[in-house]
């Protein structure tokens, strides 16, 4: 897709960020002028518990090479215990993605608090590196020119 010869392939990573922690964490990374790879596309949600597994599946079908779900640490949820539900759903998604024949690295769950800007930047770097190694998602459909 508009890629010229010799240019390195850039993965597309879809990230769901919780309004109360990881979205602020991503903000903090920017405030501290930390380099975050431009591979990430952030969608802000009010809580990681709002992320229906269908969103993750749709993200993968739409062509994301990896989906990153981030939320508050267990016990810190703004809505009592919704991130426990996130963790529950993640376990289902993990099995699903594995059985479907996608690499397990295409799905991530990380807890990032509002103060963990450096951690956020580090996490995105790590995901990008891993995905660069395993290549584009087989679910991705490129339009023929």
């Amino acid at each position: 897709m508009g890629k010229s010869e010799g240019e390195e392939w850039e993965p597309k990573i879809l990230a769901f960020c919780c309004n109360w922690c990881s979205y602020a964490g991503a903000d903090a990374a920017g405030l501290e002028r930390r380099q975050v790879p431009p591979t990430i596309r952030v969608i802000r949600v009010m809580c990681s518990g709002r992320i229906d597994p269908a969103f993750v599946l749709m993200g993968l079908l739409e062509g994301a090479d990896a989906v990153l779900v981030t939320g508050c640490h267990i016990g810190d949820c703004h809505y009592v215990n919704a991130n426990n539900k996130t963790r529950n759903r993640y376990e289902f998604l993990k099995e699903f993605v594995d059985e479907l024949g996608l690499e397990p690295e295409r799905l991530w769950l990380r807890w990032v608090s509002a103060s963990e800007g450096p951690l956020f930047a580090e996490m995105v770097r790590e995901v990008t590196e891993k995905i660069k190694k395993i290549g584009p998602s087989p679910l991705r459909r490129e339009w023929k020119k």
């Binding site: 079908l61 699903f96 679910l139």
Partner: peptide, 17 residues
Amino acid sequence: DSYAISMYNMLRIFHLM
């Protein structure tokens, strides 16, 4: 949609896991 596997099948399978 031109997905490799349709949302319908993805969700049906997921919900019955």
